[in-house]
Each structure stands twice: as C-alpha cells, then as structure tokens.
C-alpha cells in the first residue's frame, strides 16, 4: 500500500535530485520497471549504464533525468526511506500507486498530488486514515498542508 505523510515532517529526504546523484547505482538502469518509468514519465530511453536518450535533450546522463523520475527510482529501490514526492508532477502518481502494490512505500507530499479518478488504497499517516478515492484523499490531506 502507498502511505503518505502530508506537510513538513522529520527524517525526510527533501532534495531528492541531489540525493539521487550521490547514491545512484548503474545497475538501477538495468531494471525493466525503471526503464518503463523513465519511458513513461520522461519519454526517454535507457541505452546503457550511464546513458539515456532523451527526446528533448538528446543523450543525457542519469543525473539529467527529471526530478520526478529520480524520486520514483529512489522510492522504488529504497523503500525504507521517505522522499519528498512534491518533486514529482501528477504524471508520476500512477507509478507510486503501482510500485506500492507489491511492497509498501511511504512518501512525503507538501502539495496535493492528483492520483486521478482511479480507485486507490492510500494510507494517510498523519491520522492513519485509509482513503480510496481522490475526494476522500483531499478531504483528509487539506488539513495537513
């Protein structure tokens, strides 16, 4: 299940882009799920350990991936850590829900991410409530921003 802490919180990795640059492992890009996320969010294709073909920027290094996809990759590989997911746009929302089906993940949000009209199971850790739709999520999240 996806778990969310809304608002400011301790023990959060806030600057996910910097963190990514310093903990990145080249094996991460071999993972088919990561490649799908990079394709889905950035529209880019992984060519090798340190090489990505971006539609917009040409050939780029992993550090030049979007802030959103970097946070997704960190959340995927380091589920024991909590990252600032307000570095992610709404186009990352489905990936957070998807990767949390197999293993619980916790993220920190300092804005209201739009998870769309899909049915969802998200636990809001601020009060423990489990919500199943965006309208339920908004109802709870608004008080903690």
């Amino acid at each position: 299940m996806l778990r969310i802490i809304f608002g400011k919180s301790r023990d959060i990795i806030y600057n996910t882009s910097m963190y990514f640059s310093n903990v990145f492992q080249k094996e991460w890009l071999d993972d088919p799920y990561v490649r799908k996320m990079i394709k889905g969010v950035d529209g880019s294709e992984v060519l090798g350990d340190y090489l990505i073909k971006s539609k917009a920027l040409g050939l780029i290094a992993p550090a030049q991936l979007s802030g959103g996809v970097k946070t997704l990759i960190l959340t995927y590989f380091l589920p024991e850590k909590i990252f600032n997911a307000s570095t992610c746009g709404d186009n990352c929302a489905r990936w957070f829900l998807d990767m949390s089906k197999k293993q619980d993940r916790t993220i920190n949000l300092r804005h209201i991410m739009d998870f769309g009209d899909r049915k969802m199971d998200i636990q809001i850790l601020n009060n423990g409530a489990v919500v199943h739709s965006m309208s339920e999520l908004v109802d709870v999240a608004a008080d903690y921003l």
């Binding site: 969010v41 996809v69 746009g89 186009n91």
Partner: peptide, 9 residues
Amino acid sequence: RGDSATGKS
C-alpha cells in the same frame, strides 16, 4: 509547477 519532465530544472 506542473508535470515532471517539462524542463523546469
């Protein structure tokens, strides 16, 4: 603000 990968950074 807006979606990821639009070029803000």
